[in-house]
Design a binder for these strands. Structure first.
Lengths: 115, 115
DNA sequence: ATCCTTTATTACTTGCCGGTTATATACGTG
DNA sequence: CACGTATATAACCGGCAAGTAATAAAGGAT
């Protein structure tokens, strides 16, 4: 079996998962939204399905794919110890949060503690 | 540049990161603990370094590698919307937590809500 | 300067993965 | 039934990434 990490390493597969986040989709929809060939989409979906990331439900000749949470949870669990790690290294964390902040806000920065 | 996902897709690379979690290590130490060839370790470290996962500090002829949090945070951020997703699908979440629980506990399960 | 240790780099090979084309299968419609 | 649509599968190809062997480079000890 394939590791969940290698599955998600593929950009188009991540894109598919991202789309399924909002609602289930047919192969054709994914094909159009991602501008991929149909066989390519089917192939990725097969990989995702066999790895448990998605499941299919047949609607006539279409097949509607939807997310399944487990494998992504697995990834999340692997990350957990690292989260604990960097929550101790506060300085780096702050720099990071600062960057995040700067990205999403237009208002002037609230200069932080030091100085 | 390489996506953080593809970097972490490699099992040995994950292993390296896992080890660095507890303390910084030299190439030779990683080599022994992971039973990998020296060039292989150096190569992985190069990839990890160029992607910002680790940084090196020279101690004489040795080089001590330690973790850097940013790229892993990036992964974590990608996962965020999915975390939100599955926290709404409580049933699957519960089944999952149940499994987790079962893994780490020896005491009898507390059968949950439905029946 | 020579030697030893530790790490980096190069050149090469090989296996795998994703894309494409072509074909098959499933299902509905006339 | 024949036909159109939607999806899956097969066969093939090209590229890339990881391992290895050999060599270089850096630093310390004598």
């Amino acid at each position: 079996m394939e590791s969940s990490f290698t599955i998600v390493a593929e950009p188009n597969r991540r894109a598919i998962l991202g789309l399924l986040l909002s609602s289930e989709r047919s192969v054709g929809e994914l094909e159009r939204e991602l501008r991929l060939s149909q066989p390519s989409v089917s192939k990725h979906l097969r990989v995702l399905r066999e790895a448990g990331f998605v499941e299919a439900r047949g609607d006539a000749q279409r097949r509607l794919y939807r997310l399944r949470p487990e494998p992504l949870m697995e990834l999340d669990e692997w990350l957990a110890p690292f989260r604990r790690y960097w929550s101790k290294h506060l300085d780096a964390l702050e720099r990071h949060l600062d960057r995040m902040d700067r990205k999403t806000t237009t208002k002037p920065r609230k200069r932080h503690g030091k100085k």
